[in-house]
Simulated assay, not measured.
Amino acid sequence: MQTSLPVAVAAPDSSVPALPDVFRAAPTSLRALGRAVRVILLLALGISVLVNPQALHSWKSFAITYAYTVMYSTGLWLTNGYVVEWLNRRYAWTVQPGRRVLLTLAVSLGGSLLVIVGMNAVLLLIQGQPLARLWSGQMYWQVLMPLIITVIVSLFNHSRAFFFQWRDAAVRAERLEKESAVARLDSLRRQVDPHFLFNSLNALTSLVEENDPARAVRFIRQLSQVYRYVLDSESQELVPLAQEVRFAESYLYLQKTRLGDALAVEMDLPPTALAAYHVPPLALQLLLENVIKHNTAFQANPLHVAVALDAATQTLTVRNTLRPRRLAPGESSGLGLKNLAARYAFLTDKQLAIGEEAGEFVVTLPLLEL
């Protein structure tokens, strides 16, 4: 039995290398359990050869060394695997990381200490020595050194586990935020389309009530072309400004069919200056729609609207005579400009400018470049 004494000193120190694999979460399937057992057995074999190569000359000595190393590694694996897995279910790293670190240290330190003392006690019993030697100065370093190494390896592995959990949580949060933003943007975009259709149908109703079938038919054809643009741009976050201007001109044609000379529009938009810029779909149409809906227009006193592009500031400004009219209940949701501002917020840090200047209502749209 004396040939195994070197093992009693070396085994606690040298069985620690099994910890990197052992310290991971406890296996959740038989296959994972079998893999963990194989890892422990193979590592214990290598450690046994390294710490006590002389035992290779005696199968009995080697069997004792190997059994001791296997039990030592298994004890640490159970302590730092299943117990820490229990902590994972109750105290997540991402909720209270400071508290979790302290709990992990306490569990790892206390459990490993029990394993180390227990294995040294087993070794003393095998050697026929009294257990009182556990508290002697001779056993001090045999307990303290492997305990320090165990804590260091435990901290490394749990720090690694914390990093991966934190990274996964950050990825999930980013994905959730992106999906939420896309969903809100889609919701805002869908709020524009029914609003435009509702007002167009109101205009068509007026033509029908005026008993003018020819203009009504022409209006329907123009409306179909306009609404085709609405449907085609529904899935796009940005459209070329030139395309949006052509759509706005078609929209104004529909409105002038209904209002006649009561609506006067000036558009200072050089075609060569439009090519470089983009805007959210229906942005310009929404501003024109708001002008017509919220202001009075008469043949003798037309509603003036001016649309101008400023290449220096990269903005598009829509200004109109401020002549507010009383709206019927339910005619306006009050969400038009708010939705447009929200859509811009998803796309850029540039903001809409909305205000009144010298009796005019002015809205300035930032132009975006791709």
Results as ranks from 00 to 15, higher is better:
L197D: 09
P6V: 11
A183D: 05
L105Y: 07
L124I: 08
L123R: 13
D349N: 10
S61E: 04
R172W: 02
L316H: 04
L286M: 14
F156H: 11
S159Y: 12
L131K: 13
E174I: 03
T317N: 04
L231V: 15
T364H: 07
L19K: 03
P20H: 15
G46N: 09
G137I: 01
A311R: 04
L109Q: 04
V151A: 11
S61N: 05
N52L: 02
L131Y: 13
L201A: 02
N301F: 06
T94L: 07
L33A: 15
Q54W: 12
E179W: 10
L87M: 11
V318C: 09
R343H: 08
R100H: 10
A11W: 11
N202W: 05
P366L: 03
P97G: 11
V39Y: 15
F156E: 08
S200L: 12
L30T: 06
V208H: 06
N199Q: 08
Y91L: 14
K338E: 10
L102A: 14
A26W: 15
A214T: 15
Q285E: 03
V217Q: 14
F361A: 07
V117W: 03
S58T: 09
G355S: 05
A25F: 05
N320M: 08
L76M: 07
G98F: 05
W93L: 06
W135E: 05
F361Y: 06
L303C: 02
Q225T: 11
P329W: 09
V318T: 09
V305G: 00
E85N: 06
L284D: 00
I126Y: 14
K256Y: 00
P302H: 00
H278A: 06
P271D: 15
L204W: 02
L365F: 06
E177H: 10
V208W: 01
V39L: 08
M267S: 12
F247Q: 15
Q351G: 11
R215S: 09
S48W: 13
L134R: 02
M119V: 01
F219L: 02
A262Y: 04
W86K: 00
Y66K: 02
L207Y: 03
P130A: 14
Y66F: 12
G260P: 02
V305C: 10
V265W: 08
I126M: 15
V230T: 14
V153N: 02
F62I: 01
L19P: 00
G330F: 07
T28S: 15
Q127Y: 04
W93G: 12
Q127C: 05
V9K: 14
T79H: 07
S332W: 05
H294K: 06
S233H: 03
A342K: 14
A92M: 07
V143T: 13
L347F: 00
K338P: 03
L134H: 03
G110Y: 08
L340T: 02
V49N: 06
E289W: 04
A264Q: 12
A26D: 06
L286G: 06
L185T: 03
I40R: 09
L201R: 09
S180H: 07
A262N: 04
R172F: 13
L352R: 12
W141C: 01
S15D: 11
